[in-house]
Computed example of a mutant assay.
Amino acid sequence: MKSKFSLSVSLAATVAAGLLFCASCKKKDATDNSGPTDTDAAYASDQVQLEKAFEDVESIADQASMDGDMSTYRITGGCATTTYDTASATRKITIDFGPTDCLCSDGVYRRGKIIMTYTGHYRDSGYVHTLSFDNYYFNDNQLTGTRTVSNKGKNSSGQSYFSIDVNGAIILDKSAGTKKWTSSRTRTWTNGESTKTRLDDIYSVTGSGTVTRVDSSAFTGTITSPLIIATSCDWITQGTIEIVPSGTGKTRTLDYGSGTCDAVATLTVGSKSRTITLHR
């Protein structure tokens, strides 16, 4: 994010790019009926899986745009080749994992292409880039749609902020169905903008979106306390998302904690809570 081609950071430093993004609950004792059920946890799993998938490709594209070399990037290892088309006003970077599965250094199999088109420079107001996909798969799950990031200039505190719009889906392996996500968020660069290193970058994210589940039911996911994303951590370190099913249904709250870098969150329904493990 420190070069002129740099994109917004991923959900965390690498935010588990392109990994099997799902949140699953720790198994409860059969006699323990005090907390949210596995059905409740499935809503949180859908939210986390979609969010991580699109944040991860952002992280991969960010590294490619900065260095042009994916061989030392722990998300992709030596799997990807990167090509640049800078001849026109709208420029393009293509990250190609090849037509067959490549085992990346994070243990995830990837194939296909991530394509980024952009105009301007990341730090400049008015900059826009869009990510799209050409038969891109992670662990045999296909990612489709677009993610668009726009630099909106400076806020009243002098911090750069960006709009992030996603309209995409995950087509699950083994014909298990499709999960869709549309979202509109604001990402504010709260720390590290004045330095050249990415490791001190911290972002605050607000906004909401709608998830359509495999069974065609839907829910909204609204950030009720800003998500704090630090590039030095693989996980969201802080913030809450309120999950509300369309029509009638219980509200679920996913809480990432108060600043600790770990792979756990808390799911709450009413007065009952349970721990969620965020799996790679």
Rank of each mutant, 00 (worst) to 15 (best):
G221M: 06
L254D: 00
N33M: 14
S246Q: 15
D262R: 01
H121Q: 15
G77H: 02
L131F: 11
Y161G: 07
S3A: 10
S34F: 07
R213A: 06
G259H: 06
I115W: 03
T266R: 00
L199F: 10
G98C: 09
F138C: 08
F138A: 11
T275E: 00
G78N: 14
L143V: 14
T195P: 05
L20C: 08
S273H: 01
A16D: 07
T83A: 11
T277G: 12
R187A: 09
G77I: 07
T83G: 07
T275S: 00
G158V: 12
C104F: 04
E58N: 14
T260Y: 03
V166W: 01
V128T: 15
D140Q: 13
Y118K: 05
L7C: 13
L172Y: 08
G153F: 09
T31F: 15
F54L: 11
D32L: 10
A23V: 05
Q159E: 15
L11N: 05
N33F: 14
S175P: 04
D40T: 04
T195S: 15
T188S: 09
C233T: 02
G98I: 12
D85R: 12
A263C: 08
R185K: 13
R147T: 11
D215M: 12
S10W: 07
S132V: 09
K28F: 03
T94F: 05
V149L: 05
V264M: 02
V269E: 08
G192N: 06
T82F: 13
Q63E: 13
D215N: 14
K28G: 10
R274Y: 00
I243D: 00
S225E: 09
Q238W: 03
D106F: 04
K250M: 07
G120L: 07
S271P: 05
Y109N: 12
F219K: 01
T197F: 06
F133T: 05
I115H: 06
R187N: 08
G249C: 08
Q49Y: 10
N33Q: 14
V15F: 14
F133H: 10
D201C: 11
T268K: 00
R274M: 01
D96T: 12
L199P: 04
L131W: 03
D124M: 07
Y73D: 05
K196S: 15
S150V: 14
I243T: 04
L7D: 03
D200M: 10
E58D: 14
F5T: 04
K2M: 07
T82S: 09
V128D: 05
P99W: 14
E242Y: 03
K180E: 12
V57N: 02
D69I: 04
Y43I: 12
I228D: 00
T117D: 07
T222G: 06
R280F: 04
A176K: 12
D85N: 14
T83Q: 13
K113I: 10
D200N: 15
G153K: 11
W189Y: 11
K174I: 01
T212K: 13
A30C: 13
A44Y: 00
T277A: 13
S59C: 14
A41H: 01
N141K: 10
L50P: 03
S194Q: 12
R198Y: 08
V205Y: 02
S10D: 10
W189H: 08
G112Y: 01
D67V: 07
K26Y: 10
R91P: 05
H129K: 09
A17I: 06
T277R: 13
